[in-house]
Design a protein around this nucleic acid. Structure first.
Lengths: 257, 257
DNA sequence: ATATTTTTAATGGTCCTACCATTAAAGGAG
DNA sequence: CTCCTTTAATGGTAGGACCATTAAAAATAT
């Protein structure tokens, strides 16, 4: 380190806690490829000895990695910490937390969803196979037979998920899942039922456009679909006095740190 | 439990661990609004007593919430766990982990980035203020004066960040930060220097298009810019035998669970 | 021999106690 | 009033103990 640096910019002091160092080392081995999916870490007591820390500290590190979806702890003999094949759940949860802490408004979510789905529809229009189309139709049909709000919502999420998968790009699946999970919390209210048939019909129409490889028509249909849903969500939000979730971000003026 | 249940569908047994229950309760209070940014949780020893668990178990819960970016633990008297105003870092980290575990290829990242930036450019073109333009130009100018690869990369990330902010939608900022962080790992190599001037010039051009509110021209410029960068990244990736990072996803056939 | 049951040892989950380092507030010296 | 010292609260770490679970090994029955 240069001592007489004229620039008054100091690196922020960050006390490295034991568990952080451990996490870093393991993450590092992951990025380097030394550790990969399916590998098993030594037992806690053994690892603790290797890192020369107490079992408590090591456990906090493992716990962190677990909630990050990197490892999975399994009990019993032959148990231990196994490197997981990451699933997007953690990303979804992170986004959900972010929204809950009041940093994103419903309007922003809606806009992001519209934009994302527009891309997805256009890519899917190019790349989707007949199998994808069939699956989408099957889901739409299944939606018609369900009657619980929750079950119907699951169908909707599946529909979007399959559509995203048809782009053959997993990143879009992540975006969609995240937005779906967050917006799910708003899907409720009395007249959601009356919308159903229109929504289902819209999903069939979308598949028809995709089959015809008519990207513009498909995108328009998706846009109309989403706008209908979001109009409904917004109406319910206002009506129910919104149990202090999203939307009060700017009002509270949340300042970072 | 009913013994002769005809339906063979059982709910998956999920042993609720203590720390999970604690996390759920706190997350619940967050979603419900009982807890909000800036609030302080009781001290660990006190909280443990309240939940009737050991301090260890409670600490694992707090650690989980901390790595999730929900709370921040501060030492000393008057210390404790404070509800944080979440920053997107955690989402970025989650995405990074996901990629490191080999679930997304470089091609997918690239495509997602192109699509995302296209939206951002178009929205920014509508909404950016003169202040935003000035900031973008200042960053581009600053890039020219830096000479370390790392410093230049930081400038680039700032540029994209400010551009995303100009959309007035925080979700896009998250997407961009995530993609930037992940792709950052590939930005290296000898001839990155020779690209710099072209890249910087391109950033100025983009601002000019934005000022003119010419969305199509701006989008084209961004596309050309990104394609140039990604061509370079890809070339380096092949050349350096890619230290086992992204790209081997499909080859290994990572199967979830 | 084979199948079934029992025992055993490894392992994560939890609890407990103790001590350290840090920090802000209270108290004391000048 | 200012500066220094002391003090108490708090998170971080250590280390030991015990429990529940689990799969393998051993014992037993068939």
């Amino acid at each position: 380190m240069k001592t007489s640096s004229p620039a008054p910019s100091f690196a922020p002091i960050k006390t490295q806690r034991a568990f952080e160092v451990i996490c870093e080392q393991i993450r590092g081995q992951l990025a380097a490829g030394t550790l990969k999916t399916g590998d098993k870490l030594p037992a806690e007591r053994e690892l603790a000895a290797e890192f020369q820390v107490s079992r408590s500290a090591l456990r906090e590190a493992l716990r962190s990695l677990e909630v990050a979806g990197i490892i999975r702890n399994v009990k019993g003999v032959k148990g231990g910490a196994f490197i997981q094949s990451a699933e997007p759940d953690r990303i979804v949860q992170a986004m959900q937390d972010y929204v809950h802490l009041g940093n994103v408004s419903l309007d922003e979510l809606t806009e992001a969803r519209l934009a994302t789905q527009d891309i997805i529809v256009r890519l899917a229009c190019e790349r989707a196979s007949e199998a994808d189309f069939a699956e989408l139709e099957a889901i739409a049909e299944r939606t018609r037979q369900e009657n619980g709000v929750e079950a119907r919502y699951e169908c909707a999420a599946d529909y979007y998920r399959v559509l995203a998968r048809a782009t053959k790009n997993r990143m879009f699946g992540i975006f969609v899942d995240s937005l779906s999970a967050i917006l799910h919390e708003f899907v409720q209210g009395p007249d959601y039922e009356t919308l159903q048939e229109a929504l289902i019909e819209s999903r069939f129409k979308l598949v028809r456009h995709l089959r015809a490889r008519d990207a513009d028509a498909a995108a328009v249909e998706m846009r109309k679909h989403l706008e209908r849903v979001h109009r409904h969500v917004r109406k319910n939000l206002k009506a129910q006095d919104a149990p202090a979730k999203v939307g009060k971000a700017r009002a509270k003026g949340a300042r970072p740190d």
